[in-house]
């Protein structure tokens, strides 16, 4: 059995209530907090609705840099390894290429956190 309305519906409805029902009645000094709350709800909504884009970007990054053998390492271990390898200069000869791969991964996270920013940066 599914719980209905689902989480996405609840977040969207809560955000609409906050922006349209509550915000107009709040004193001005509380608008900033209300807008931050609305933003947090919007991010959470995009996060639960997001496709596999981010996981895919991470997998590509992993594969390009470490080959198929590293895929079993898991994302957290991989991030630690990549961070260490970058610091110690293991990828010095490939820095521009690694930058492009990281850009794809960062863009995937931005599609959830702030898609407008991606657009302003000419990447949407």
């Amino acid at each position: 059995m599914r719980n209905l309305p689902d989480a996405a519906d609840l977040l969207k409805t809560a955000r609409d209530g906050l922006l349209n029902g509550l915000l107009p009645h709040l004193p001005k000094e509380h608008h900033y907090t209300a807008l931050m709350a609305a933003n947090a709800l919007a991010i959470a909504l995009r996060e639960i609705q997001s496709d596999a884009g981010h996981a895919q970007a991470e997998a590509t990054l992993l594969h390009e840099l470490y080959g198929s053998a590293a895929a079993s390492e898991g994302v957290d271990a991989f991030a630690t390894r990549l961070a260490g390898d970058l610091r110690t200069g293991r990828f010095d000869a490939r820095l521009p290429e690694v930058g492009s791969l990281l850009l794809a991964e960062v863009s995937a996270r931005l599609r959830v956190s702030n898609p407008k920013y991606l657009k302003q940066a000419g990447l949407a």
Partner: peptide, 22 residues
């Protein structure tokens, strides 16, 4: 809430870093 949202700004800053260096 403000500090939490600052954490979610990190990808914006990362994007800036990559683009500025590129």
């Amino acid at each position: 809430l403000e500090l939490a949202l600052t954490g979610r700004m990190l990808p914006e800053i990362e994007l800036d870093l990559i683009q500025e260096i590129q």
